[in-house]
Design a protein around this nucleic acid. Sequence first.
DNA 1: TATTGTTATACTCTATAACTATA
DNA 2: TATAGTTATAGAGTATAACAATA
Lengths: 147, 147
Amino acid sequence: MPSNLTTVLDKVLELSNLVSADLDQFLADSGLTTARVHLLWVLGLSGPSTQQSLAAALDVTPRNVTGLVDALVESGHVTREPHPTDRRAILVTPTKPGKKAIDQLRASHTELAQVLFGDVPARRLAMFEKTLDETITTFARLMKEES
Amino acid sequence: MPSNLTTVLDKVLELSNLVSADLDQFLADSGLTTARVHLLWVLGLSGPSTQQSLAAALDVTPRNVTGLVDALVESGHVTREPHPTDRRAILVTPTKPGKKAIDQLRASHTELAQVLFGDVPARRLAMFEKTLDETITTFARLMKEES
DNA sequence: TATTGTTATACTCTATAACTATA
DNA sequence: TATAGTTATAGAGTATAACAATA
């Protein structure tokens, strides 16, 4: 009955792709893009941040962050505020509309999880999560060995 | 014990991201890119194809396929062959190195699935897959309603 | 000297629109 | 008239390298 291991992997990827497609829908409505939302999301988690720390969190070059922040300033989601103690640095800070967008992102993320997994029996969901945990751990070990 | 629904969703996405990172590693070694590998993968599934059909399979514009095929011709992975009956059309065809790359992609995909899920007990894996199936189905229904 | 951010430059993926050759 | 592919143009995300201001 378990078709085969490759099929299971494919289904994990398929689900992930569907979630991404759903996000894209949200983006099309809001005028944002995946990369900019990613930055906003990190900003929501960390609060006002320097571009250096954003670059590290997004695993992207500082130059790239400059471009993303330019766009988010342009669209009114963030502002560049002076750093209180380091005059070289900048604190990228969400505006009121920016905060609202972050809240909406969180809400739709939560709602999506509810829709997807809300009907799965608790015990089965716990096992599902356990399998995910083990798989992620296995993977982390694997990638560590390779490097 | 099951932390919460959002956490489960996050873990699915995390696993998918790890798999993508692994693919990127493969790409860095081979000199290919995600988009080009995607095209090669489809080519491996369908055999020699017109650019129109590739555009449909990749859900991308025909113009985009032109660029990807240009690059794959340049790198020696495919050739443009005349269509036997339609002189407007072209058959994008993998070369020997192209076929080899496709085989390697398949092999590493299979190997990855084995590493990730090979140690999961069969019954638990079957339930894991069942949960994935239900979730994917739920999602498909949801997106249909939204559109 | 080291760090923060920007300017300069370039490549990849993607899209729309107009065009050519063929059906 | 419709289809297959290309040229022209544009925008987004990404990268490296050189540079300015500040630490």
